[in-house]
């Protein structure tokens, strides 16, 4: 009968979260002791029938009111700043992060590594390297939660959300869905397996490191995306140079795109996805609204492959 009381800390951010928790816990316990202590102390000392000194009772004290307003205010602001700083760090993935694409659907996690391996309800990653997840849902809102890493992020239909972490020690850690998503919400999860860099490379090359069936297709996501790009005939309009019926896509990712009717938009993953599903939502300046929609022809996992491909096109 195990009785764990504290989760393992297996990411670089986890100890920072725990440190903040301990700080706040310290403040919380102090006030609980103060409040509880004073209640007990007063209830005893001033219990009716006791001979305590009750002369000149006080009903108001501005210094006290200010003290117990300002001191808690200062303490709470300190927690705010620390929590904010930590959260900002959680939101800023390092530039060299490994990219993993996630599609959550009722009731499973469909995970594709940029390098090509695909897995279900499992995520293998190397210790010591940051990993960035680009996630979307095929249906309702889910949430990707790894308690050992101390992070979670809701996974939404219709857009991408991101999260990142860096595993700090090898091991197997729970992966949960933490946003109620229907009947088998509690079953939607699995294991995150952190491997030494060597083991991870072996896994990537095809050896199965868990019991879950997954595919080693041998091609990277960008390569899968390239195949899709040609199969769906995107290449017919999106040619290199200015010769096509649609804008050239070399270097499109991360560029600031000028829109018809004014305004610019950053061509991030969400923009690329939207452009494939709802091409007329944002028209690129100087181009007619002629692109057909591919809604219904590609699923979320394939969209991620296309996005990975487009991201790989280095620019002019």
């Amino acid at each position: 009968m195990t009785l764990p009381l504290f989760p393992v800390a297996a990411s670089t951010l986890a100890p920072r979260v725990d440190a903040l928790m301990l700080y706040v816990l310290g403040i919380v316990l102090t006030f609980i002791v103060l409040v509880g202590g004073f209640i007990f102390f007063f209830a005893l000392k001033y219990h009716h029938g006791s001979r305590a000194d009750r002369s000149s009772p006080v009903y108001f004290s501005l210094p006290l009111e200010l003290a117990w307003t300002v001191i808690p205010l200062v303490l709470t602001l300190s927690i705010f700043f620390w929590g904010a700083e930590l959260f900002i760090a959680m939101r800023e993935p390092p530039a060299d992060a490994l990219e993993v694409y996630v599609v959550g659907r009722q009731w499973m996690w469909d995970i594709q590594h940029a390098e090509g391996r695909r897995e279900v309800d499992a995520l293998h990653l190397p210790v010591g390297r940051p990993v960035k997840l680009l996630m979307t849902s095929a249906d309702v809102i889910h949430s990707f939660f790894v308690p050992a890493f101390r992070v979670k992020q809701d996974v939404l239909p219709g857009r991408y959300t991101t999260m990142w972490f860096q595993a700090s020690k090898p091991g197997r850690y729970h992966l949960f869905c933490s946003q109620y998503c229907g009947t088998s919400h509690a079953a939607m999860g699995g294991w995150v397996t952190a491997l030494s860099p060597a083991d991870y490379q072996r896994w990537l090359d095809g050896a199965s490191a868990g019991g879950v069936a997954d595919s080693a297709s041998g091609e990277t996501m960008a390569e899968s995306g390239a195949r899709l790009f040609h199969r769906l005939n995107c290449a017919a309009c999106h040619r290199d140079g200015a010769s096509g019926a649609g804008p050239a896509l070399a270097g499109v990712f991360g560029r600031a795109v000028q829109l018809e009717g004014g305004g610019t938009v950053l061509a991030d993953e969400s923009y690329l996805r939207e452009s494939i599903l709802r091409p007329n939502a944002k028209i690129v300046k100087g181009w007619p609204p002629r692109m057909p929609t591919y809604e219904g022809q590609v699923d979320e996992a394939q969209l991620q492959q296309l996005v990975a491909y487009l991201k790989s096109l280095k620019g002019a």
Partner: peptide
């Protein structure tokens, strides 16, 4: 008096939740 004690505990744990970096872990 029970209210004061328990509300204090509950309210103070709210400070943990208001902290962005902590809520990311304990939300939901």
């Amino acid at each position: 008096l029970g209210f004061i004690g328990l509300f204090t505990i509950g309210g103070l744990t709210g400070l943990m939740l208001a902290a962005l970096g902590l809520d990311a872990h304990v939300h939901d």
